[in-house]
């Protein structure tokens, strides 16, 4: 999972649906801890700004 910081609005919707608490939000950015992430895809689906992509994905 990768956060495109130019699209991200730092709204925190992704944090609420992360089942393993792998996402941190600060005033300026959202960070996904990849060693905790289980690649479930929840954050990707609910991100209203569509700022999260699967790493390596061309889109």
């Amino acid at each position: 999972m990768k956060v495109n910081s130019s699209l991200c609005d730092i709204c925190g919707t992704c944090v609420a649906v992360c089942p393993v608490d792998a996402i941190r939000v600060s005033e300026f950015c959202v960070h996904i801890e990849m060693d905790v992430c289980t690649q479930c895809g929840n954050c990707l689906q609910v991100c209203p700004a569509r700022a999260i992509t699967v790493e390596g994905d061309a889109s």
Partner: peptide, 15 residues
């Protein structure tokens, strides 16, 4: 909505 205080304390607030 992005709360983590509960999670730090062991309350599962994931939706």
């Amino acid at each position: 909505v992005e709360s983590r205080v509960g999670r730090w304390a062991g309350i599962d607030t994931a939706v």
